[in-house]
Simulated assay, not measured.
Amino acid sequence: MDYTHRRILLTVLLFISSGAKWAEGARVFTLVNDCMTTIWPAITPGENFNGGGLALRRGQSVVFNAPVGWSGRIWGRTGCNFDQAGNGSCQTGACGTTLKCGAAGKPPATLAEFTLASMDFYDVSLVDGFNLPMTVTPVNGKGGNCSSAGCNSDLRNNCPSELAVKADGKTVACRSACDVFDTDQYCCRGVYGNPVTCQPTFYSKKFKQACPTAYSYAYDDPTSIFTCIEGDYIITFCAPGRKQTVCTYHDNRLICSGSSRSALLICKWFVLMLLCMVSLWSWV
């Protein structure tokens, strides 16, 4: 069992042992940091997500529970420095000067967008630019498309110089053409404010080529928006181009993406053993 697999299981165990319960019909969100450094995920609205913001160290994961009817966005912040009161700043994705976000993040930022209903809608958007690779992997879905969405490529490596955001001599984010040039054509507004006249541009095509399952411009719907019925969602930051097993826990079952039956049995055995250990500890 690899390190990623074990740390997801340990996160699940901590969530269970804390006494938290999954509400019927709710969706389980697992956030995984596979970046080389600490990131600061942000969520709005964030009442079900630690108030809208947290620090996630390299290799760490965390589990949240969102009710049906929740509609919001998740993104990662980088280069942050917060004090004990949760006040500070970030190089990218900042939502003002607070750790817990009550407002949208400052572009450029890679966004995961969700609307939870009888059929969930979700996507990963680069319309406001890019700051981190991010993928959304549904598991346990009972219908719909339930395909992975997002961007495994790191667009910072090949960001056009006119779009690049730099800090300490490094490109830390890639702005959108709309943000840089502020024209109707790039922003899909005015006479370009409909899917007929708003067409892919040189810059959006570069984004789409690198990230074919992410929104590259405002009307990039056919290949960028996905649906799933009663699925849970694993949001992974970074890990470009690497296949991995990711797991979440729902309705007393451990669900892993890309797992064989034998691997699932090993996972279930592992969780049962950990739960038994917790039970024994409670008697001590």
Rank of each mutant, 00 (worst) to 15 (best):
P222I: 06
A55R: 12
C276V: 12
C198V: 07
S216F: 05
G150L: 07
S148A: 07
G86N: 11
N140K: 10
L265W: 12
Y192H: 12
S118V: 09
F64N: 01
W75P: 04
R27P: 06
T97Q: 11
T97M: 04
A85G: 08
S89H: 07
G88C: 08
S259Y: 06
Y203R: 02
A66R: 02
V172H: 03
L111H: 05
P107L: 04
S148W: 01
C101S: 09
C146E: 11
P41N: 03
L54F: 14
G53I: 03
F15E: 13
L14K: 11
W281S: 10
P200G: 06
A263D: 15
N145A: 13
S262D: 15
A210Q: 07
D251A: 14
S262K: 12
D168E: 08
W22K: 09
Q199A: 11
M134K: 00
P108F: 06
W75K: 02
C247G: 09
S224E: 14
Y233S: 10
I229P: 00
R175Q: 12
C267W: 08
Q199T: 15
K268V: 14
T245Y: 00
F181P: 04
D34W: 09
Q199F: 04
D34A: 14
V191P: 14
W22C: 05
L163S: 01
I39M: 10
D83Y: 08
L132D: 03
T245N: 01
V196Y: 12
A55T: 10
G129I: 05
W70E: 09
P133H: 00
Q209W: 05
S153T: 06
L280H: 05
Y203H: 12
M119V: 13
T201I: 06
T135F: 01
T30I: 10
T201K: 07
C267A: 15
N145M: 15
K206A: 14
